[in-house]
Design a binder for these strands. Structure first.
Length: 823
RNA sequence: GCCGAAGUGGCGGAAUUGGCAGACGCAGCAGACUCAAAAUCUGCCGUUGGCAACAGCGUGUCGGUUCGAGUCCGACCUUCGGCACCA
């Protein structure tokens, strides 16, 4: 047989596969469905190794499931709106669309060069009007359901990107995309009311049995649910009440002061009445001008200013000073906090600094506390109330609900659940995104663009300038419209939507990508969804995965689909690293997929990346490791070449008893491999061990390289081996199959185990003395624990090892070991 | 600070339910083939002692449970990731 030439055979097979008749997927109720999905890429122009890993994993899953009898949906598309296209327009004068589409073309070519089994007929590109028309339609749906609203708020602003950002897009106070420091700006912006679904998004995490725990925990922390008491304190001098939220109502008798955020609405009134207004105002300005990082760091110095006013603690009538401080987060709770220095570390530090009163209200049951000796707040989970009126003596957890009940009975407070999750800020002051379909009319106000006028298309008469306000505002064509309600001249909304909206529903569009009446047909989406296996990077643990869950729930409530969660199973792949760091241009450790594919072929690239590490863990790139994978494929090619005549002369149904002992052993290894590879693919996603098992099988077959092999066995071996290799290395498997057998390896049924082939009459078990391995011995397979215990003392090896000692005990594990305990 | 994950040869990693630690691969060493090289093939490859058979030690550290622990329990160390003034 000729040499293994990956470049030649890969091109040949890719041509066969690049045909709608070959890859097209249809609804088929005769088979169970399976939806395999990799996170669609941003069209940066080139695939990187992270993509290669992502798609290799997905392709194995999809191809395996097809062969295992499932009707598999495996689509691909592009998350094609976003800043880089616009930056290209600013710096090179290219149209964002031209830049994007040429990148997509290039990336599709690279994906095809990987031999990926996608239904290209279903490809979606979020920047095309036939897609974003429905993104806009969905915006209107949210709007009509009261889930989209515009309000003025202090929002996260990134100067380099010239736009606002969602909370989820601010990482350590910096922009997720450009790493520039984000600051607050007061702007009127569009929001999606994700907080309406906070409780369900949290609760339904329990349903996601197929998700990694850490992703669920990250979402749980992000949603940040807490239960507590909201109650109000009178401010007699101002004839006002201040509402506060606490998760520690049991400490309410220990309030000595109240801390307000500088943004708190009461501050205005304080300023108007205070003789010290100037100084207070100066303090507020100073805090507001601090960056988010300075303000929200728990390490930064706590500062505050006394307002001169007091409020009354409704529980005990005590007067408490009202302070304005830099450590209260305005956006959370009520923007005002009851301060209990003895039982909150921040309050303790603050009270110590400004010499404010401290009252001990929770005592340590194990070791009574002394206020004078306290150097930190007592925040343990055990405690008994003291100095707390009629609640004194009560265990703190009981006191929590008793005190809430008391506040409710006396009408100054109520039980309250709070979330850290904020509404999703979705408007962006950029061009390359889906325009928000809203028109502003002086008479009618905010008006939705009528459904029949969708899509609101992106105009091309725009100017691109660094940092300028949205380029859309420079388009005359776009801006000058008439009000759909009254027909008077009106203006368009010039903001576009966050690209995370486009990616929150793309997996639904794949189920019905050409629909021009609806975003997707309900029956189609219900047939294919939810996604059975979703594969992508951990970086989307919160952002995309939370937003998609939110979308699914809203669309369910709007009766567009009938399930609660979009992704049944989630696999978070590790990064591809080299020399201990993530591949990056600045570090110069980038390995380009193209280069590897050109040198060794796509099969080698896929094989190495799947073999080198378990999918969830980071993968250390090794050029020598790639060589090893290439060697393995050559070995497969060579050994099947040696067996060629035998394979062709063999028959499928044959008498196994005609095999000699060596051949029976090879057949046993073959069937053990079938069992292991199938389990690894179906249940464990352990592609690395599946491949190592296949390597062992090929090594075993290799023993027959220069001795005759039973032709029927050679045929059985080749068939099963190629079917098992097909999901991992589709081209070489297809090529070798076509040399020996009829049909298409990728259309074969998955391999089945012959349990009888695995069964052995004798099994080697271990003999331990006092837990240490001393001997190996062959015994009949399947001997019970009792039988083994009985024969153990009669075994010559045991007698030899225990000579002169007393046997205390014998432990036997069938088919595994005998442990003799001696003295 | 809180939450989570991980720690096994020179390296990537395996050991699925508590039962032979180091599968498979990389690198390395020795040999075969070759005029030579490449490719390929064969053998060795945790560590200490020993000519050897074999024995001792060995899965981050210390302790525990067990006939038996990489795996379970307790305490700790290190690394990575997420959240972080959320009252």
């Amino acid at each position: 047989m000729e040499k293994y030439n990956p470049q030649e055979i890969e091109k040949k097979w890719q041509k066969v596969w690049d045909n709608p008749d070959y890859y097209k997927t249809e609804i088929d109720n005769s088979k169970p469905k399976y939806y395999a999905l990799e996170m669609f890429p941003y069209p940066s122009g080139n695939l990187h190794m992270g993509h290669v890993r992502n798609y290799s994993i997905g392709d194995v899953v999809a191809r395996y499931r097809k062969m295992a009898g499932f009707n598999v949906l495996h689509p691909m598309g592009f998350d094609a709106f976003g800043m880089p296209a616009e930056n290209a327009a600013i710096s090179h004068g290219v149209k964002p669309g031209d830049w994007t589409f040429s990148n997509i073309k290039n990336m599709i070519a690279q994906q095809k060069a990987m031999g990926l089994d996608y239904d290209w007929d279903r490809e979606v590109e979020t920047c095309r009007a036939d897609y974003y028309r429905w993104t806009q339609w969905l915006f209107e749906l949210f709007y009509k359901r009261g889930l989209a609203y515009k309000k003025e708020a202090a929002v996260n602003w990134c100067d380099t990107c010239g736009t606002v950002l969602a909370n989820e897009q601010v990482i350590d106070g910096k922009c997720w995309r450009c790493d520039n420091e984000v600051h607050k700006k007061n702007l009127a912006q569009w929001f999606f009311k994700i907080t309406d679904y906070a409780d369900e998004l949290l609760k339904d995490l329990e349903k996601l049995q197929g998700w990694p725990n850490r992703v669920k925990i990250m979402q749980e922390n992000w949603i940040g649910r807490s239960e507590g008491l909201e109650f109000s304190l009178e401010v007699p001098e101002l004839e006002e009440k201040i509402s506060v939220y606490t998760t520690r109502p049991d400490t309410a008798f220990g309030i000595t002061f109240l801390a307000l955020a500088p943004e708190h609405p009461l501050v205005e009134k304080i300023l108007s009445k205070s003789p010290n207004a100037e100084e207070i105002k100066k303090f507020c300005e100073k805090v507001k001008n601090q960056s988010d990082i300075e303000r929200t760091s728990s390490e930064s110095e706590k500062e505050g200013i006394f307002t001169g006013f007091y409020c009354i603690n409704p529980f005990n009538g005590n007067k408490a000073q009202i302070w304005i401080t830099n450590y209260v987060v305005f956006e959370y709770g009520t923007g005002a906090v009851m301060a209990v220095p003895t039982h909150d570390q921040r309050d303790f530090m603050f009270a110590t600094k400004y010499n404010l009163e401290k009252i001990l209200v929770i005592d340590n049951p194990k070791q009574p506390l002394k206020l004078e000796e306290m150097t930190a707040a007592y925040v343990e989970k055990d405690g008994v109330l003291v100095n707390s009126g009629k609640f004194t003596g009560m265990e703190m957890h009981k006191a929590m609900s008793a005190i809430i009940d008391y506040a409710e009975e006396n009408n100054f407070g109520k039980r309250k659940v709070n979330y850290k999750l904020r509404d999703w800020l979705i408007s962006r002051q950029r061009y390359w995104g889906a325009p928000i379909p809203v028109i502003y009319c002086d008479d009618c106000g905010e008006v939705l663009v009528p459904e029949k006028d969708l899509p609101v298309e992106l105009p091309d008469d725009v100017e691109f300038k660094q940092g300028a306000l949205s380029p859309l505002s420079t388009s005359k064509k776009f801006n000058n419209v008439v009000c759909p309600k009254c027909g008077k001249p009106a203006r368009r909304e010039t903001d576009t939507m966050d690209t995370f909206i486009c990616s929150s529903w793309y997996y639904m569009r794949y189920t019905d990508p050409h629909n021009d009446k609806m975003p997707f047909d309900r029956d189609k989406v219900n047939y294919w969804s939810p996604v059975d296996q979703y594969i992508g990077g951990i970086e989307h643990a919160i952002l995309h995965l939370l937003y998609s869950r939110f979308f699914t729930k809203v669309l369910r409530d709007a009766k567009l689909l009938d399930y609660d969660e979009p992704f049944t199973n989630l696999l978070t792949q590790g990064m591809v690293i080299k020399d201990g760091a993530k591949m990056s241009k600045s570090l110069g450790n980038v390995v380009s997929p193209e280069e590897i594919i050109n040198k060794y072929g796509a099969d080698t690239a896929r094989l190495f990346i799947l073999f080198a590490a378990p999918v969830e863990r980071d993968l250390d790139w090794s050029d020598q490791g790639v060589e090893g994978s290439f060697r393995f494929l050559n070995r497969v090619w060579r050994i099947l070449g040696i067996f060629e005549d035998a394979i062709k002369n063999g028959v499928d149904s044959y008498d196994i008893n005609a095999l000699n002992d060596e051949e029976k052993t090879l057949r046993r290894i073959l069937h053990k491999t079938i069992k292991k590879v199938t389990e690894d693919l179906r249940e464990r996603f352990m592609f690395n061990t599946a491949i190592s098992t296949l390597m062992e099988l090929v090594n075993a077959a290799h023993n027959f390289q220069d001795k005759p092999i039973n032709s029927n066995l050679a045929r059985e071996l080749a068939k099963n081996l190629l079917i098992m290799l097909a999901p991992f290395v589709p081209h070489i498997a297809a090529e070798l199959w076509s040399k020996f057998f009829e049909g298409d390896v990728h259309k074969q049924s998955w391999v089945t185990v012959d349990e009888a082939a695995i069964a052995e009459d004798e099994v080697e078990i271990v003999i331990q003395i006092n837990g240490k391995v001393r001997e190996h011995v062959k015994v009949a397979t399947g001997l019970s624990k009792v039988e083994l215990e009985k024969i153990a003392p009669t075994l010559p090896q045991v007698q030899e090892l225990t000579a002169g000692k007393t046997i205390v005990k014998i432990i036997a594990v069938p088919n595994k070991l005998i442990n003799v305990v001696v003295k």
